[in-house]
Design a protein around this nucleic acid. Structure first.
Length: 191
DNA sequence: GCACTAACCTATTCACATT
DNA sequence: AATGTGAATAGGTTAGTGC
């Protein structure tokens, strides 16, 4: 661990922790928030670590397809053309976080300075506005995604000639947007 | 080096409140 | 109904750790 690390330091689960995680995963690979919270308490870690672990585990176990229809409630939400993940028997999600105007102001300001904050900065921000760091991380993810989306829409709404100019600018010396280019290595802890 | 995997990313979708 | 946005997902990448 280096102190200047952009990432959170890597969690090392113990054998016992893994046993419990795997056991739960085998029963429900898509746990709701309550389950994640219970797990977090049981193995003494954070809910966000549980969530990441389940994400990675599903990916490793080839969970890209539907796990099977035995637990679904096909009567309620049927959409024939998309039988995938929306059919898993869903437990409740985490409650939606409601940000105050001043919290949003702080987040947006931070985003404009650096859309890829490292763990240190996220933690500072989280403390400053009084929400968990995991919420800050999600907020930045959503914000970036919607920023990309908006840019794309702007591009397609332009004349071809303008598109070229704009995309050039976005690669090069444009304002905030250029920070959202795929390469993110330059955004180390500079906040 | 390489395998494994936590951390992280984008793109998309779900869910739900507001307009 | 359309819109806005937090939460969850799939699927991919980056990087720390142990061999």
């Amino acid at each position: 661990m280096v102190g200047t690390s952009h990432r959170r330091s890597r969690t090392k689960f113990t054998e016992d922790q893994l046993k419990i995680l795997i056991n739960t995963f085998n029963q429900k690979p898509y746990p709701g928030y309550a389950t994640k919270q219970k797990l977090a308490l049981e193995i003494n870690t954070e809910v966000s670590r549980i969530q990441i672990w389940f994400q990675n585990r599903r990916a490793r176990c080839g969970f890209q397809k539907t796990p099977g229809p035995e637990t679904l409630e096909s009567s309620q939400s049927h959409r024939q053309d998309q039988p995938d993940r929306k059919f898993q028997s869903r437990e409740a999600r985490r409650c939606r976080t409601i940000y105050s105007a001043s919290q949003l102001c702080t987040l947006i300001e931070a985003f404009m300075k650096n859309p890829y904050p490292g763990i240190d900065y996220r933690e500072r921000l989280a403390k400053e506005i009084g929400v968990p760091e995991s919420r800050v991380q999600i907020w930045f993810q959503n914000r970036r995604s919607r920023f990309h989306l908006q840019r794309k829409r702007e591009l397609v709404s332009l004349e071809p000639e303008e598109q070229g100019k704009l995309s050039e600018r976005l690669q090069g010396n444009g304002p905030v947007v250029s920070h959202l280019a795929p390469k993110r290595s330059s955004w180390t802890t500079s906040g």
